[in-house]
Nucleic acid binder design. Structure first.
Lengths: 331, 331
DNA sequence: ATGAAAGCGCTAACAC
DNA sequence: GTGTTAGCGCTTTCAT
């Protein structure tokens, strides 16, 4: 049984496609379709449960009502939760979300980006690794609606929803210095992204402010391609160096670290202090204690959607840069 | 600057659309387009960075290369991780994922379902709350490609990727009985879903097998609309009843429970034992100790995609029911 | 108050 | 080897 089209309905009812279309799009009155005709059509449509083909609509209207959500990993709780919030906000406006995980990989981001564009998404919300700045700049120049969040490239002027990085990280590290930490390691995923560099700078700032000499050996970078193993290896190194605190640049590696401390290492749990950029619920009770920098995910989602909508609706170029304040959670 | 269409290219190059289309779809040789022409076209296309409009293609071909992923909540780690695995598997086959979270709400599932169908998704992977069995049966009768996972409705014959529920839950509860638990509560989200009922039955089976009298008062149902608050209230009740163990029917409420025990209740942490259907990494070290039933998410994702592909490709009706074995994790 | 027809961008059967 | 053309399902201008 093939799906009914507007053409079939027109034939079966003896009206023209035009009339059917007007009625279906609530333009019946505006277009002076008689009450009676409207009733007949609506009644019939309900009876046969006719569903218009959105693809045909999209082709005609040049609008798909679909937004692309492009992030490093949709299963990372940070991106998953923001994604969920965005999904809900967009849903209210009749939009759907199509997702793509880039794994921080250049080629994958590039491919996903062009696929989304080919699929005529109406806009993009993206935590980019800025691998192909050229393509992004081209899209941006063509006024393609995009909102970037979580990450920034200073060489690229675009709509950004960001969170302050350097100062909050400095303040968080300061907290554990206040509590007595003196030998503080840092663990980060590959800081190819500007925001991560800023977080690392925040760590350095805190040390400098307290006249703690920076030991480059205590700054460890994990391999994004093998996050689990690599994080554990680096932790092992830091612990062997007898650090009394470790700062992490995102929640994913903090979570691995907590797991590792409790299940593999099983020592120093109460002696060592953690600092994590990004919060997780489990930090409320996990040991080692974690001072964390919590990003305001509701606000991030809200602004991302608001600004994207603004960009989609406006004809002239909109460029906004929003910098939100994260919340320092002491524990 | 409007986007170039195949028509523009044809005009600019002096060939017909057909020729361009053939070459672009790698049918140049097959259709006897001369090498020279092919080169000219490919070269030009590269130069102007022409991108075919997938919407137009979809309309023509009746294929969108999009799969809908419909789950209660994409930010729930269980669904997020399976979603990610599915995304990767589908990506290899040139498919994209469009997501929808139903929040276990009837109307939302219905709406999302029809939106996805209207958008001509090529198939659906869905953890349904089976709110509108009629619509599902209609779709199924029309041979619309769908694979159901995580949940089952015994009245609905469809493709299912499931995990055994009753026996694993019984075995998990048995573990804590073996460790001395005698007064065991149960906390569940609203068991409108058959699989949840089975999990609860598993709990009952374990009690029966050990001649522990079932106390219906110790079976508590949380309100899905207010998971956080409601879970905490029910926990409070169970603790006041001096249970020495609690079984949970999914990981979400177990996670809330661990959080609540550690941050609000702050007592009985080492005395009480937890059982959780679904695993979480943090169970490896969290207190109270958790015996968990870990679902094989890689397998679930793999089967879901494989079977969906099979259904899409085959013309005749395919109905498969796969029941996977979860893993009991003792701690 | 309603309908005819063009066109969105693409594919493919058929013609030359 | 390459081009003409119809058509996927819908919207909308212009006629009547």
């Amino acid at each position: 049984m093939k799906k009914k089209s507007i053409n079939d309905i027109a034939k079966e009812l003896g009206f023209s496609k035009t009339t059917i279309s007007f009625v279906l799009n609530n333009k019946g009155d505006e277009k002076n379709i008689s009450k009676r005709t409207q009733e007949i059509i609506l009644e019939y449509v309900r009876k046969v449960n006719y569903q218009p083909n959105q693809i045909a609509k999209s082709l005609k209207n040049g609008k798909t009502n679909t937004i692309g959500y492009l992030v490093p990993d949709i299963s990372n709780p940070f991106y998953a939760r923001i994604g969920r919030l965005i999904e809900d906000l967009l849903w209210e406006q009749g939009y759907h979300l199509i997702i793509g995980s880039t794994d921080e990989k250049q080629e994958k981001e590039d491919l996903l980006l062009s696929m989304f564009v080919n699929r005529q998404v109406d806009g993009l919300i993206i935590a980019s690794c800025f691998s192909d700045l050229h393509r992004l700049k081209t899209l941006s120049a063509q006024n393609f609606p995009m909102v970037f969040f979580d990450r920034e490239d200073p060489d690229f002027n675009a709509n950004y929803i960001l969170v302050e990085n350097q100062k909050p990280m400095r303040e968080a590290v300061q907290k554990i210095i206040d509590k007595g930490a003196t030998k503080i390691g840092l663990l980060s995923i590959t800081p190819n992204i500007y925001s991560l560099k800023l977080r690392i700078n925040g760590y350095k700032d805190a040390l400098a402010k307290n006249s703690i000499k920076l030991d480059e050996n205590l700054i460890r970078i994990v391999d994004n391609n093998d996050l689990q193993e690599s994080t554990q290896a680096q932790l092992n190194y830091l612990m062997s160096q007898k650090v009394d605190a470790i700062a992490f640049t995102n929640n994913q590696i903090t979570a691995i670290a907590i797991w590792w401390m409790n299940t593999i290492h099983k020592k120093d749990l109460s002696e060592i202090k953690f600092v994590s950029f990004d919060n997780l619920d489990l930090f409320d009770y996990s040991i080692p204690r974690v001072v964390s920098v919590a990003q305001p995910i509701e606000e991030i989602a809200k602004y991302a959607v608001d600004i994207l909508k603004e960009v989609i609706q406006s004809n002239d170029r909109v460029i906004k840069r929003i910098e939100l304040k994260p919340k320092l959670i002491e524990r």
